[in-house]
Computed example of a mutant assay.
Amino acid sequence: MPERSYNPSPRMTGILDAAVRVTAAGGLRALTHRAVDREAGLPEGSTSSYLRTRMALLVALSEHVADQLHAQVRALMEPLASEDGVDEEQLTAGIVGLFVEWLDHPEVSLVRAELSLEAVRVPAINKAFSPWHDDLIAAATPIAARTGHPQPLRLATATVAAFEGILLSALGQPEDRRENYLREMVGLLVQSLIR
């Protein structure tokens, strides 16, 4: 996975972390400059001095969430990129561990879901948000290729879409069943990817 050049200032990071919390709690409808100022403990008008419009706020939030997802996925995938074969148990455990972490701290996953829907309608959000998804497919493609699949890119694309569906459906599971649900569903999907 390629490095990303996203590098916000500490002040901007604080604003965008507050925007994540606001959006996770109330959805994109709750995301306003004033709500972010309140959540960040900043004087009114602080967020709008950095991000003048709602669209600027949404795009910056998309880049912020995409960068967090990219870093976490990269940490999972990099060790697998150098392997000659794919260890099914290692891959399953890594993905389950990442998904459990996301579900234990669901703010970014909830915001990701909100932004994914908005990105369908708003090209600027799609442009800011989709690179992490493309990077994930790019990371999964060599794994699919090592299985001898005739169309590894298509297999990786389908598998990533299925992983996203599993994560979203896990958010709706009772908390005490989420990890077992993830382990079973991810295990089935990893088997389909590497066999």
Rank of each mutant, 00 (worst) to 15 (best):
E83M: 12
I95F: 10
E107L: 07
E107V: 00
L98E: 00
V86G: 00
G97C: 05
H105P: 04
L80R: 04
E89T: 12
E88D: 12
V86E: 07
M77Y: 01
A93E: 14
E83F: 10
G85A: 14
G94S: 08
E107W: 09
P106K: 06
L80S: 00
V96E: 05
A81S: 14
E83N: 13
M77L: 13
E107S: 13
D104I: 07
H105C: 09
D104C: 11
E101I: 00
W102M: 15
V100I: 04
G94N: 04
E107Q: 15
G97L: 05
I95L: 14
M77P: 02
L98R: 02
P79T: 02
H105R: 14
L103A: 09
G97R: 05
L76A: 01
G94W: 05
G85L: 15
E107T: 08
L98Q: 02
L76Y: 04
T92Q: 15
E78F: 07
L103V: 02
D84F: 10
P79S: 08
I95G: 07
W102P: 00
E89Y: 11
L103F: 02
F99L: 09
E78A: 09
L91Y: 10
V96S: 04
L98K: 08
I95Y: 08
L98N: 00
D87Y: 06
P106M: 07
S82W: 11
V86C: 04
M77G: 02
S82A: 12
A81N: 00
D104W: 04
P79C: 05
E78M: 05
L103G: 09
I95H: 01
P106Y: 12
V100L: 09
G94M: 00
E107H: 07
V100F: 06
L91D: 00
V100Y: 05
L76C: 03
Q90C: 06
G97T: 03
F99C: 09
G85E: 14
D87Q: 01
E78Q: 08
L91K: 09
D87F: 08
L91N: 07
L103K: 03
D87I: 08
E88P: 01
P106A: 15
E89H: 13
E78G: 02
V86L: 06
V96D: 07
D87H: 10
L91E: 06
E107C: 01
W102Y: 14
L76T: 02
P79N: 03
A93M: 03
D87R: 11
S82L: 12
D104G: 14
A81V: 00
V86N: 08
A81G: 08
L98Y: 00
G94I: 01
E83S: 14
P106L: 07
E78K: 00
P79H: 06
L98T: 07
